[in-house]
Design a protein around this nucleic acid. Structure first.
Length: 424
DNA sequence: TCTGGGGTCCTAGGACCC
DNA sequence: TCTGGGGTCCTAGGACCC
């Protein structure tokens, strides 16, 4: 528990609400025996990565993204749980419902995190500090989860405030108090400063946000590049002008699967890519969208990655078209790599636009010489439409292009994938 | 014992056009 | 025969976020 900084200044009207160790907290809510114990969702001592760690686990050095075996070594009594992904979705949605009661100016940025602009809500609920406290009480009482809230004049500052408030706290940065709040904090709290940029800044002797704010922007741009340098300098100087955006559509859609290391063989590569292309194209068609650029990512042993992209003259969303393009791109990368083993394949589609009723991609394919006047793309669309309709009625696994046996080993549940999907 | 899966944005270099 | 400069699009790679 941490106390709010005093103050009810009307200017701190952007809130950032962020559930604490979300997946792990849900597990502790569902199973009282896990409360107070170090818990890791996902992974295990013999493989996979930790998707989320409880605060008890974090205190022992366990972090999200860490390989399970390393987490187990750091914390021998760590309890690994598989995860209740459907519950995460349900409870995350329930929390967003609570937030939406405060204001419709709500920007959800992930399953467990959102910005709110409460400038229109203060006459109903009081100053931002009171709204933040009310949100925390309601989420605790009605959903049963701890949530931290930051309030400030800008999104960037509100997000930093919520990070400082964690776990289970509320921090309000009053207008006028921004510099005093920011200056002593480490640069890694700035949105966009990760391990690499943190080190680059440290090489210049810059460790705090105050030091960064006092460094000429040109010097920062010199080591971080112009775009990133300008952004980060502006953040350090508290010059964030972003508004709360209530709806945002994804600009790309992708799917990827880690594979147990294997030498690439044509049938196996095609099978995995067909599966991924099916996931991607299905999501596109469900929203009446299509994309012009197809990108394939291949990861090799040693975490070396390679990508290949192709931009088409017209948007595509047919499963078979996407599969064929992906296969060609993947082999371009694999052939360039020489003898190798692959550990991941990914397919993504960008340059996404609304698809008109006409399936323009039909004309990408040459006519079938055996059937004069035929439009082979029409057959593809017809197949996709039939499959989509069957899945709608009978479930996603009722029909597919692939034998189930080809699903890559170690795959995460589909429910987990869906948690991370952005709205198209 | 050796790293998930969903995304966003930026950069450099090359092709191409006017 | 040689040649400027700017703009746009594309590709490949990389950093970062949740």
């Amino acid at each position: 528990m941490s106390a709010a900084l005093p103050g009810a200044a009307p200017g701190a009207t952007i809130l950032h609400a962020d559930l604490d160790a979300f997946y792990a907290s849900v597990e502790q809510l569902l199973d009282p025996a896990l409360r107070g114990r170090p818990v890791a969702v996902g992974g295990g001592p013999r493989g996979g990565v930790v998707l989320a760690a409880s605060y008890e686990a974090k205190a022992r050095g366990v972090q999200g993204g860490m390989p399970g075996w390393r987490a187990a070594r750091l914390c021998p009594d760590l309890v690994f749980v598989r995860g209740h992904f459907g519950e995460y979705q349900r409870l995350g949605d329930a929390v967003m419902d609570v937030l939406a009661d405060v204001t419709p100016a709500l920007e959800r940025i992930s399953i467990d995190e959102a910005f709110l602009d409460v400038s229109g809500a203060t006459h109903l609920f009081g100053p931002p500090a009171a709204i933040g406290a009310r949100i925390r009480e309601r989420v605790r009482a009605e959903v049963g989860l701890p949530i931290s809230v930051g309030a400030a004049r800008t999104k960037h500052l509100a997000k930093i405030a919520s990070q400082v408030a964690k776990p289970d706290g509320l921090v309000v940065v009053d207008p006028g108090g921004e510099r005093a709040f920011l200056d002593p904090l480490p640069v890694e709290l700035i949105w966009g400063v990760g391990p690499v940029n943190e080190q680059r800044l440290a090489d210049l002797g810059i460790r705090t946000i105050g030091e960064l704010a006092r460094t000429p922007s040109s010097a920062v741009e010199h080591i971080l590049g112009r775009g990133v340098g300008q952004k980060i300098s502006a953040m350090a100087r508290d010059e964030d002008a972003r508004r709360v955006v209530t709806s945002r559509r994804a600009r790309s859609v992708g799917a990827q699967s880690a594979l147990s290391r294997r030498a690439p063989d044509p049938d196996g590569v095609r099978a995995v890519l067909a599966h991924l292309a099916d996931r991607v194209s299905r999501r596109l068609r469900a929203k009446g969208r299509a994309g012009r650029t197809v990108t394939v990512a291949v990861r090799f042993t040693g975490m070396r990655r390679s990508t290949r992209a192709l931009t088409l003259p017209v948007p595509v969303c047919a499963t078979l078209t996407l599969t064929e393009i992906a296969v060609r791109l993947a082999w371009s990368a694999i052939d360039d790599a020489g003898p190798c083993e692959i550990t991941l394949l990914g397919v993504s589609v960008s340059n996404v636009v609304d698809q008109t009723a006409v399936q323009l991609e039909l004309d990408l394919e040459p006519p079938d010489p055996w059937r004069p006047g035929s439009r082979p793309g029409a057959a593809r669309s017809a197949v996709d439409e039939s499959v989509d309709a069957i899945r709608t009625r009978f479930g996603a696994d009722s029909v597919g292009y692939l034998p189930a046996v080809l699903r890559p080993g170690g795959a995460v549940p589909d429910e987990f994938r869906e948690l991370a999907e952005h709205d198209l």
